[in-house]
Simulated assay, not measured.
Amino acid sequence: MHDEILRTLAPPVRKTLVRVLAVPLVLLLVPATHPWSYLPSDDGGESPYSAGAPESSASDPAGGGSAEEPPPTGTPATSTAPTASAEEAAQAGALDEIVEKSADYRTSVQTAVDDASACGAAQGLDQDASALRGAAEARSSLASDVNALTLDQVTRGLDLKVLLQEALRLSATVDNHFADWAAAVDDGSCSASSVTDQADYLLATGEANEAAATAKQDFVDAWNPIAETYALRSWRADQF
Rank of each mutant, 00 (worst) to 15 (best):
S191M: 06
L132H: 01
A103V: 03
I98M: 04
A103D: 04
W235P: 08
P61G: 12
A118I: 02
I98H: 05
P11E: 11
W36V: 09
A208R: 05
S189K: 10
T78L: 06
T205R: 08
D238H: 02
P24K: 05
V18P: 01
T229D: 13
A172V: 00
D200C: 00
P12I: 07
A10V: 09
L6D: 12
E88S: 15
A148H: 00
V154R: 07
N176E: 15
V174Q: 05
W181T: 06
A182S: 14
A121Y: 02
S47G: 10
A215Y: 00
V13Y: 12
L25Y: 01
T229S: 15
S56T: 11
T107E: 03
A148L: 08
V113W: 01
D60F: 00
D96W: 02
D200F: 12
M1W: 04
S108R: 07
G206K: 03
D218K: 13
V185Q: 08
V109C: 00
D197M: 09
E55R: 05
A179S: 15
P40A: 15
E100P: 00
G188L: 02
A10E: 14
T83L: 13
L158K: 08
L168R: 05
G206S: 07
S141N: 11
Q165M: 14
A211H: 03
V185A: 09
P48Y: 02
N224K: 01
A192Y: 02
S234T: 12
D128P: 03
P82W: 02
A143V: 03
V18N: 13
L163M: 08
H177R: 13
R7K: 14
K101G: 02
C190M: 01
G124N: 05
A183S: 12
P71V: 12
A199H: 06
L29M: 15
A67S: 15
A90N: 07
